[in-house]
Simulated scan of single mutants.
Amino acid sequence: MSDSTLSSRTVLVTGATSGIGFETARQLAGRGATVLLHGRTPEEARAAADRLTAEGTDAALLRPVAADFCHLAEVARLAESVLRDHPSLDVLVNNAGMAAPERHTLTGDGVEIAFQVNFLAHYLLTRALEPALTAPGRLGRVVNVSSSLHRTATIQWSDPHRARRYSRLAAYAQSQLALTVFAADPRVTAVSVHPGVCDTALLPLYAHEGGAPADGAAHVVRLCDPATEIVNGAYFDRAVRAAPAPAATEVRTVKRLTKLADQLVGAHATA
């Protein structure tokens, strides 16, 4: 059943082929939103859209898109295609995420893999899609799907790739802190949300048992709804606004992270 507050909306959901992202796409389309359903490859995105359609979602509301976030050039190309086909975008859900691997791993872009997939690729995508999110007549918003583990993190400014001292949990937490800090960037209206511990591929980082991904997705979808008023930089623990880690509200930290991210994305920011 469509919802009048979402039926005319266009939403890009990253990491929408499984887990919370898949359920977010399902719920948004179920309420009448047009969903740009992102997968790592075109085949994965199409398979997820086909699965949703087979389960009753209106195929006309699903637009499969693809980019491997391990490659910033693909992220830049994704942004270009979205801007071309959807010059006005209502919501960007930065959901794609991975657990940091056991061994220290760099992408082909020279970035620690969890930092790139969980944060830097989303930073690049958000910056590139800013014209669509701020188009005339649009009050676009960004919803960063973060984690309560951001509270345990520090950003290693002199060694963001953690080459000197690597821990998979610390690397993952750093990526989530960066994503949470990024929500306070003043250039677009953004919030971050911990959707709860859910039974997804990331569950081993948190606990042995988790809730249904659909329950976590409901907290994300609520923040996509224009009927839900938001304040830039706010952090939600599921449905409740909560104080994030102190660093997430520090203007100096936001500026420092922006400088670091701009250096890391380099020429891809204008690709």
Rank of each mutant, 00 (worst) to 15 (best):
M1L: 10
L6H: 02
S7H: 02
S8W: 10
T10H: 12
T10F: 09
V11S: 07
A16G: 03
T17A: 05
F22S: 04
A33W: 00
G39S: 12
T41W: 08
P42Q: 12
A48Y: 02
D50P: 09
R51G: 08
A54F: 09
A54W: 08
E55Y: 10
G56W: 11
G56H: 12
T57C: 12
T57I: 14
A67E: 03
D68K: 08
C70D: 11
H71C: 11
A76C: 11
R77C: 06
D85Y: 05
H86I: 06
D90C: 05
V91S: 08
L92Q: 05
N95P: 08
A96L: 01
G97N: 02
G97S: 05
A100L: 01
R103V: 10
T107P: 08
G108F: 05
E112M: 07
F115G: 04
H122D: 05
L124H: 08
L124Q: 09
A128H: 09
L129W: 04
P131T: 12
T134K: 04
A135V: 02
R138M: 03
V142I: 13
V143P: 01
N144M: 10
S146K: 05
S146N: 07
S148C: 05
H150L: 10
A153P: 05
Q156C: 12
R162F: 01
A163P: 03
S167V: 11
S167L: 08
S167H: 11
L169E: 10
L169F: 03
L169N: 06
A173Q: 10
F182T: 00
A183K: 01
V188A: 03
G196M: 06
C198W: 00
L202W: 07
L202Y: 05
L203D: 13
H208M: 04
G210E: 10
G210W: 01
G211M: 12
A212G: 01
A212Y: 00
G216Q: 09
A217R: 03
D225K: 03
V231R: 15
N232C: 06
N232E: 00
A239V: 14
A242C: 11
A243P: 00
A245V: 13
A248L: 06
A248H: 01
E250N: 11
E250S: 09
R252M: 13
R252A: 15
V254N: 15
K255L: 11
R256M: 15
K259F: 15
L260S: 07
A261P: 14
D262C: 15
D262H: 15
Q263K: 14
Q263D: 14
L264Y: 13
H268W: 06
A269I: 13
T270G: 02
